[in-house]
């Protein structure tokens, strides 16, 4: 297994766990209480930043063409990384579609959505972006042997 592939698996495991935790917190406490409950807000924000930091350590070094990581990957890994951006695009489109449908269905009668949602959409897109890159990397390795 290539080093990038191992890191993608690890990243998905960490990202998936944190995403599930964030989702669980938001479901249990209610997303609209995000701004009222300081503890919840800092916990969710901390978890998401932790996930992004883990991703920055695991995957981002492979995007650099210089540095010590260069010895761990070659042109096939670069091709896999490039193709993974396609999965990121579909992941983001899917997440935005899900948010749009859910918020429209739930808040159709009110005509407005609580102000917290644009903030949560932003964080969720960052999470989906990192997770879908990992999935794209694994798909790429599967297709390219």
């Amino acid at each position: 297994m290539a080093p990038l592939q191992k890191r993608a698996w690890l990243g998905i495991a960490i990202g998936g766990t944190i995403s599930a935790a964030v989702l669980g917190i938001l479901i249990i406490n209610g997303a609209t209480s995000f701004y009222d409950d300081n503890m919840m807000r800092w916990t969710v924000t901390g978890l998401i930043i932790g996930m992004l930091a883990a991703w920055a350590v695991l995957i981002a070094p492979f995007s650099s063409s210089k540095g010590r990581m260069k010895a761990l990957y070659d042109e096939r890994d670069e091709a896999v990384l490039r193709r993974a951006s396609g999965a990121q695009l579909w992941g983001i489109i899917g997440a935005l579609l899900a948010w749009s449908i859910a918020l429209t269905e739930i808040y159709w009668d009110q005509g407005t959505i609580p102000i917290v949602f644009p903030y949560l959409i932003f964080w969720s897109i960052l999470m989906v972006n990192t997770l879908s890159q990992g999935i794209g990397i694994l798909i790429g390795y599967r297709r390219m042997g």
Partner: peptide, 22 residues
């Protein structure tokens, strides 16, 4: 050739077409 063993395995199996350089 300066690549990883995994890439040689993929090229040999015909799952990855290498660059002209490789």
């Amino acid at each position: 050739v300066g690549c990883t063993r995994q890439t040689i395995i993929a090229v040999e199996a015909g799952k990855y077409v290498p660059s002209l350089s490789l």
